[in-house]
Write a protein that binds this DNA or RNA. Structure first.
Lengths: 162, 162
DNA sequence: GTCCCTATACTCGGATAGCAAGTGTCCGAGTATAGGCGG
DNA sequence: CCGCCTATACTCGGACACTTGCTATCCGAGTATAGGGAC
């Protein structure tokens, strides 16, 4: 049970988009080089974010991606669901309705205890991700990332856009 | 990000093993027919449970699987980790250490904020699964499953073992 | 000098291969049983 | 009649194909820009 690697990339990219001047666009190529990941593949994930209205895309020269919503309105859960899909990890296939002791399907209106237990765990996981917003992550970056890296990253981005 | 289907099968099988007389063994073939799933594939998952010391296996005629630990000591988390592996869904690949602004690896001792957020969500998910034990699930079965199905299931199991 | 037009280069977006992991199946090693044989 | 021995059949356990979905890549449609030319 592993999450798509693209989720990690997406969150990092959104963190970068959140700190550049508002409205400024960064092309997928620059974001990919900045993180050392394949540009073409990252592009696919950015498209997912665009479809979820988390970022918006601008075509042509000087184009790229920029945040569409406020950084305080984007949660980690939003990003996970946009990139990795919103289906729960555990999918009940109702095997209780199969086999020799099965009854009429009408008898199974309530989800079984196993499915309910997993749904509860899934809800707790989602709630934890929902409580972390993008601006909170950016705040953490400012506090914990070495100032040298922040400076070098900002300088590199400047050089790319010139 | 989807969990192995075998987890659902394993939990259902363990619920059955928990209600048959203690010490009695049920072969994978019977458990598979009872749930209407492929016997050979279920066998693979039962082997995982055996390696995790959740069940123990008995070879030869009259053999099969039976619970090794008490039903109150087996949690859903134990089953998930036995069947699906214990690695967290989100694996940080440290992409912050890549790209043009990366510093010396010595500068990255603390996990990044993103990894910490996902770890927290993962911990909440695991804690929810840890709090649900097998005997609790069996209790729920007795309360919510139609008595007819319980009777038919018990009868069918009797017929198989005779 | 100013405006317009065109060619350019750069962007996203979706369509196309490659690969790893989960899914599904099969056969062999080992063992308790059941029946037959000898005492 | 009782005990032992052997052949049997049934079990788990691991080794072997197949399919799905993630990973990775490429190329085409569309657009803002930059430069050149006309006025």
């Amino acid at each position: 049970m592993k999450m798509s690697e693209g989720v990690e990339w997406a969150v990092h990219c959104l963190s970068v988009l959140a700190v550049v001047p508002p409205g400024r666009t960064l092309p997928a190529r620059v974001l990919a080089d900045f993180h050392g990941v394949p540009a073409a593949y990252l592009s696919k994930h950015m498209q997912r974010l665009a479809k979820a209205d988390i970022v918006e895309s601008v075509s042509g020269p000087r184009g790229g991606f920029r945040l569409k919503a406020s950084a305080s309105e984007v949660s980690l859960l939003d990003v996970v669901e946009a990139v990795d899909g919103s289906e729960p990890a555990f999918r009940c296939t109702e095997i209780r309705q199969r086999g020799p002791s099965a009854l009429d399907p009408r008898c199974y209106k309530k989800p079984c205890g196993i499915a309910r237990a997993f749904a509860k765990a899934d809800a707790a996981w989602r709630e934890a991700l929902r409580s972390v917003t993008l601006d909170r992550l950016v705040e953490d970056l400012g506090a914990n990332v070495h100032p040298d890296q922040i400076a070098r990253g900002a300088q590199w981005l400047e050089d790319q856009l010139s």
